[in-house]
Amino acid sequence: MKLIAKTSFILCLLFVADLCFSYVRHAWHSQTALQDRPVPSALDPIVKQNADTLKAAASNKGISIVITEGFRSFKEQDELYKQGRTKKGNIVTYAKGGESYHNYGLAIDFALQKKDGSILWDMDYDGNQNGKSDWLEVVTIAKKLGFEWGGDWERFKDYPHLQMIPD
C-alpha cells in the first residue's frame, strides 16, 4: 500500500514539474522570439491582414469592432508602462519598451463599436442579440485566425489584446 502511495506521489510531482516546465518554456520562447525580430515601424502585413479579416468576420456576425491600438514604438511603450507607476492612472501593462508584441507590429487591441459610433469595452454586451457575448465571439474568430488572446493569460488579463507571430 505504501508503494502505491509513493508511486502516486512521484507521478503527481512529475506531472506538476512537466506543467511548470511547459509554462516556463512557452514564456521564454515568447520573449526570445521577440528579441530575434527586427524592429519595424508599422504593423506586420500578416497581422494587419488578419486584423482586417477579423473585422470583416465580426461584421458578418453583426458585430462592429475597431482596432484601438496596433504598432507601438519602444518610447510609446515606456510611457504606457509609467502609467500607474510614475504617472497618474491605472497600470495597463507590465511590458516595457521592447517587451511588448506591439513594439514589433505583432499585436492589436480592439473594442466593440455600437451603431451610434460609440466605443465600448464591455465583455457582456450582446449588440447582435444572439444570446452570446459579442466580445467573446470576436475572440473566438481571432483565435481561429491564429491570434493569442490576452484574456487567456495567467498573470495579467489583457482583454482587448490579440497577438501573433506569423509563420
Rank of each mutant, 00 (worst) to 15 (best):
G62M: 09
M123W: 09
N60D: 15
N50W: 12
A111Q: 07
V138F: 04
K6C: 14
R85V: 08
S64G: 03
L112K: 13
F110C: 01
H161L: 05
E154H: 09
K132D: 00
T140L: 08
A95Y: 12
I63N: 07
A57M: 09
E76Q: 14
G98D: 12
Y101S: 06
Q163Y: 14
Q31S: 14
L43E: 12
L112N: 13
G105I: 03
D44Y: 01
I4M: 14
R155N: 12
E154A: 07
K48W: 08
A107I: 11
L14Y: 10
P166L: 01
A27T: 11
Q129N: 05
A95G: 03
Q163W: 08
P40M: 02
V138S: 06
D109S: 15
T140F: 04
K88Q: 11
H161I: 02
W153P: 01
Y125C: 11
D36Y: 13
I165M: 11
F110M: 02
T7S: 05
W121Y: 12
Y104F: 13
T140K: 13
L162E: 01
D44C: 02
K61N: 12
C12I: 12
N60I: 06
A111V: 07
E76P: 03
L54Q: 13
D18V: 15
L43V: 08
L43W: 05
I91L: 09
P40D: 07
E148I: 06
A17R: 03
T68D: 06
K75Q: 13
G105R: 01
V92H: 09
K75W: 15
S8N: 12
K75I: 14
T93D: 04
E79N: 09
W153T: 08
D167N: 10
S118C: 03
L80R: 06
D18L: 14
D18F: 15
L54K: 08
S118K: 15
K115Y: 08
G97M: 06
F74H: 10
L106R: 01
D18T: 15
Y94K: 14
V138M: 04
F110Q: 04
V139F: 05
N60C: 00
Q77K: 00
G131S: 05
G117S: 09
G98F: 07
H26Y: 08
